[in-house]
C-alpha cells in the first residue's frame, strides 16, 4: 500500500464557460520514505495537488487514498483530524502566529491534540532543538530572521511526528544560503527520522535535494522520475 494514491483525480473550478480544469485525470502515488519535489509552472496544478493531498481541498472526481483511507467522503472535521494526526505543513510565508513565542507556535498542534502542558512543552523544545533553535524558544517571530522563522515552522510541522510533511515553496522567501540550510534540514528529517516529504517548488536547485521529481503541466502529471539527490 502506498502512502498516497491518486486514482484519476480531477479538480475543476467554476462551471460552464468559466470552468477551469486544474487537475485532469491524474494518477499518482507517494511511497513511505519518499522525498518528492513537485514542479511545474504556475497554473500547472501543483498547488491543487498539494491542497488535495493536505486534505485542505477535495477532488471533483476520482479517488484519493491516504494510507489506505478514502478521503473523498470525509467531512471537514474528519479531514481536520487527518491533518492533525498524520500531516505537517510548511508554507512559503512561514505562517507563524505573530506575537506568540516560537515555543507556543510549536506547541499549537499539540494543543489541538490535547497533549498535557508539561509533555507539550518538552516535545516542543525537543522539536526546536532538532531545527537548531532551542535557544530561541521564547523569541517571537518578529525577533527572528526569515530562515529562523521557517525553522520554527518546520519544528511546528514535525512536533506531532507526522507521517507526511507537506512543504509549499518552503524556500521561496529565503536567500540561497538560507534555502540550502532549510533543504538540508528537510533531507535530514527524511533520512534520519524516516519522514516522507512532499515539496512544491519551482526552483531546480531545491528540487535537486529530492529523491524523486514529479512535474505537472496543464493539470497533468508530465513526468515522474527518481534521481540521486545532491
Amino acid at each position: 500500500m502506498s502512502m498516497i494514491e491518486f486514482h484519476a483525480i480531477s479538480k475543476t473550478y467554476g462551471s460552464g464557460e468559466a470552468e477551469v480544469r486544474a487537475l485532469d485525470q491524474v494518477d499518482f502515488a507517494v511511497e513511505q520514505g519518499d522525498f518528492i519535489a513537485v514542479m511545474g509552472p504556475s497554473g500547472s496544478g501543483k498547488s491543487t495537488t498539494m491542497n488535495i493531498i493536505g486534505c485542505l481541498d477535495t477532488p471533483s472526481s476520482g479517488q484519493y487514498l491516504l494510507m489506505g483511507q478514502e478521503v473523498g467522503g470525509l467531512d471537514r472535521d474528519q479531514r481536520a483530524l487527518l491533518r492533525r494526526n498524520f500531516l505537517g505543513f510548511i508554507f512559503q510565508g512561514f505562517n507563524l502566529l505573530s506575537r506568540t513565542t516560537a515555543l507556543e507556535n510549536v506547541e499549537l498542534p499539540l494543543v489541538y491534540q490535547g497533549v498535557a502542558p508539561d509533555e507539550r512543552r518538552a516535545r516542543a523544545l525537543e522539536a526546536l532543538d532538532k531545527v537548531g533553535l532551542g535557544s530561541r524558544a521564547e523569541h517571537q517571530p518578529s525577533m527572528l530572521s526569515g530562515g529562523q522563522q521557517q525553522r520554527v515552522a518546520i519544528a511546528r510541522a514535525i512536533v506531532t511526528r507526522p507521517q507526511l510533511i507537506l512543504a509549499d515553496e518552503p524556500t521561496g522567501n529565503l536567500d540561497s544560503a538560507r534555502s540550502r540550510e532549510i533543504m538540508e534540514l528537510l533531507r535530514q528529517l527524511n533520512r534520519d527520522e524516516g519522514m516522507t516529504v512532499l515539496m512544491v517548488t519551482h526552483e531546480p536547485d531545491m528540487a535537486a535535494y529530492a529523491t524523486r521529481v514529479a512535474t505537472f503541466v496543464d493539470g497533468r502529471l508530465q513526468s515522474d522520475v527518481r534521481q540521486d539527490a545532491v
Binding site: 493536505g54 485542505l56 471537514r76 472535521d77 481536520a80 483530524l81 491533518r83 492533525r84 494526526n85 505543513f89 505562517n95 507563524l96 502566529l97 499549537l108 498542534p109 489541538y112 491534540q113 511546528r156 506531532t160
Partner: peptide, 16 residues
C-alpha cells in the same frame, strides 16, 4: 483570517 487558516491547517476542527 490568516491565523484561522493556520489553525485549521494544523488540525483545528470547526468546533475548536
Amino acid at each position: 483570517t490568516r491565523e484561522i487558516g493556520i489553525r485549521m491547517a494544523i488540525g483545528a476542527t470547526e468546533g475548536q
